[in-house]
């Protein structure tokens, strides 16, 4: 599972340009439709907001009690009582609303939020997601709102590197890490490809420039269906 392995795709590795983190966020942002209520996970998902195409009105939900989350505050705007789920200082846009936690999770669990974008440790071919714990005995378990989000939000997009830092596939037949939710993921955006979770299996719909289907399949521990043709 590393790019130096001799095989049919080595000729492509020179012209291959996997998507950068910003390009992944940019690609994901294309799929956020006008008028959506969106919840962004901590980390790479937060980047998506800056790439939503102009002209689309999107309202960001943060589960600690705000609809209409805006960008980072200026020093004058800063208020320690105005933070996002990652506990970073944010602003509230015109038309924003504040509410308490039970209302906030009613929006989530009650299927009122349209899209949630999260990171992943593993995604299975059936759309199971593991993103909260490695299950290691010395780890401090922490789940936050992830299980509620995947159980309640209408569309779950995952944005993640295709493999781990050591080259292990993150898209697998069956998750080995503890699950966040079962059959919850709709689409995966990686540095190599865009993959839909369908009833027929994992459908690869787009490839990063110069990347081949076989190259992605070799780095995926579950069968992919080629939908690029």
């Amino acid at each position: 599972m590393n790019s130096n392995t001799s095989n049919a795709d080595t000729s492509n590795s020179e012209t291959m340009t996997p998507w950068s983190r910003d390009q992944m966020a940019q690609r994901c942002a294309q799929d956020i439709t006008d008028g959506s209520y969106v919840n962004l996970g901590i980390g790479m998902p937060e980047k998506v907001a800056q790439y939503v195409p102009k002209g689309r009105e999107v309202i960001y939900h943060t589960e600690n009690g705000l609809l209409g989350m805006g960008p980072e505050p200026t020093p004058e705007e800063y208020d320690p009582d105005l933070i996002n789920a990652g506990k970073k200082a944010v602003t509230a846009v015109a038309g924003a609303a504040f509410f308490h936690h039970a209302d906030s999770f009613s929006m989530i669990r009650g299927k009122h939020i349209d899209v949630c974008i999260l990171g992943a440790m593993q995604v299975s071919k059936d759309g199971d997601l593991a993103n909260w714990s490695t299950g290691a005995p010395d780890a401090i378990p922490a789940v936050g709102g992830a299980m509620d989000l995947v159980a309640g939000v209408k569309i779950i997009y995952i944005i993640t590197q295709h493999t781990t830092k050591t080259g292990e596939p993150k898209i697998v037949d069956k998750c080995t890490y503890p699950l966040t939710g079962q059959a919850v993921v709709n689409r995966i955006y990686t540095d190599l490809a865009v993959i839909d979770v369908t009833n027929e299996g994992l459908a690869l719909t787009e490839l990063a420039p110069g990347v081949t289907f076989d190259y992605v399949q070799e780095r995926t521990a579950a069968p992919l269906i080629d939908y690029t043709k």
């Binding site: 589960e63 906030s104 999770f105 378990p141």
Partner: peptide, 9 residues
């Protein structure tokens, strides 16, 4: 450990 929305509810 309780999921955040479950804790709220």
């Amino acid at each position: 450990l309780v999921p955040q929305g479950t804790l709220a509810e």
